[in-house]
Design a protein around this nucleic acid. Structure first.
Lengths: 297, 297
DNA sequence: CCAATTCGATAGTGATCCGCTATAGTGACA
DNA sequence: TGTCACTATAGCGGATCACTATCGAATTGG
């Protein structure tokens, strides 16, 4: 079953006249006749009753009409969509974000991006470092923003955006009473709210073990928001990048802890050798040009 | 955009590997590569990022996938349906009926037909003589049952089924009191319920004019059922084929009217030179073999 | 009743395009 | 570094599609 056969079939269905259908299709009438005959042979039944003046669809042809019409319409729709995309009236950009990167960090750049590309369809993927690396590799996302991906694939382009401290946060009404620096050991009796999705999770664990701290109690959470709610309720202690709760610090207290100092670098990632769409290139430029100092202080 | 290109595109979308996709499609890999390239050229953008190990759909390819998938699915569905029809598991028959032919006349034959073809999809078209002739000509219906079609097209096959009288019917409580024959003139003051859709309407009109009868009042109705309801309510006089109300005579009275005698012949119609489907041939045989005497007495 | 017209089928030819084999080029991987 | 895996390219039949020319039959009009 070939596309031109379907096109010819639909033309004859409309005109009920082989000659005129051939004109409509801009082919010679014998070509159309033969195409229809081949289609009939393939389907195993006559599609038309040829009666000069009264040519019409057979019962069989009537059954075939909707399906073949749909087939053709889909092809036409695909071509239309392709044209629409090519003309730039339909552009999209998929961005992979670490669970540890707050959307608020990106809002200014995204706002500017949408000013440049009003029609842009933005799509976000959230994931762990491994998932983000996968998204980039498979081309699910054109760019990604995350902490260190761990994975060393030489085709990853990484543009560092900013560095920030991982800080320890407790609820305003809980934890050590003083504002003086406390020791890790003092803190070890609290419940640790563990973020397994964090790029720094392994490093934090090592750090705590080096400090001879064994946290007796540990909750696993699956999002920064959940963690913040738990911390505010005094149900545990969290280790968070500074930027996560910036501008949303009510009910929280940042602790100075002796012997705990970890920084992470948030980078923008891409895959070298892949041409970037215009919006992707623009977002890259916007993010790299941005001054992040306000977000990490 | 050719069908094989779409098939190849879908295969590569599944396997994400040109070589394996070519195997799946039972073509050589270069043929598939070229087909995809042509498709990309036609659509105006790359569908895949060729990265040996990591070949994947581009954003553009992802957009195209659903539509092209639908296109291919429709074609496959059409072929499946064709096979299904050819194997006889899906047969249909369209029958055109005059408004003046009661379905009850056909029930015995249809019952038998459905015993022979349990899977048969029956479809009915109702219409006037002109409409029925059109249905037959255009192939909308394979067979028709009606009174005289009026149209003389030499390609109409007509098999007379039965003849019957056109009778005059009034409500039980209305009309002339006696059971004696009345004259047309006596009746002329009643309201005539006129059936414009009847094949005999013209002839009936002539007949009444010949009898020098002018009906002062005339209602037009659009169905036998509506007419019977009106007649039962005493709102008029109807002229009906005997078979119409057979088995449904409550509230009705048949009048003997001097000088009024019209018969009509109900025939089965087909179009010569068109091959009939098995169910059509069977129904033809059943209807012609039937004894109609009980229906017209 | 015959000529003109219309409509679909057939024949024959040329060109396009598909599918094939062979092979090159290039990352990935051990 | 050598081998493998994967895609692209080149070149060659062969299938088939589109074309022109023409026929046969049926309808239409004078």
């Amino acid at each position: 079953m070939e596309m031109h056969q379907i096109r010819y079939f639909l033309a004859v269905s409309r005109t009920l006249n082989f000659t005129r259908a051939a004109e409509d299709c801009h082919v010679a009438q014998p070509s159309l006749t033969r195409a229809i005959k081949l289609l009939e042979a393939e389907l195993g039944g006559d599609l038309f009753r040829r009666e000069r003046n009264l040519t019409h669809l057979t019962e069989f042809g009537k059954r075939m009409l909707p399906l073949l019409g749909q087939c053709y319409e889909s092809a036409v729709a695909a071509k239309r969509l392709a044209t629409s995309i090519r003309s730039g009236s339909l552009v999209s950009l998929t961005l992979a974000l670490s669970h540890t990167v707050s959307m608020t960090l990106l809002i200014p750049a995204l706002t500017e991006l949408l000013r440049l590309f009003p029609q842009l369809e933005l799509r976000f993927l959230r994931g762990t470092a491994v998932e983000i690396a996968e998204h980039l590799k498979k081309g699910d996302a054109a760019l990604a923003v995350a902490g260190p991906l761990g994975e060393s694939w030489e085709r990853f382009d990484a543009w560092p955006l900013f560095s920030e401290a991982m800080e320890i946060v407790v609820g305003e009404a809980s934890g050590p009473a003083s504002d003086e620096p406390v020791s890790l050991r003092d803190l070890a009796r609290s419940r640790l709210l563990y973020r397994p999705y964090c790029e720094m999770a392994g490093l934090i664990d090592e750090h705590l073990l080096e400090g001879q701290v064994s946290w007796t109690d540990r909750y696993e959470v699956v999002s920064e928001q959940d963690l913040l709610h738990l911390v505010r309720s005094g149900l545990g202690v969290g280790v968070l990048p500074k930027s996560t709760a910036s501008g949303n610090t009510e009910g929280l207290r940042w602790l100075q802890v002796d012997g705990f100092e970890i920084h992470r670098t948030v980078s923008l990632y891409g895959v070298s050798g892949r041409e970037r769409s215009a919006p992707a290139a623009a977002l890259l430029k916007l993010l790299r040009a941005r001054d992040w100092s306000a977000d990490v202080s």
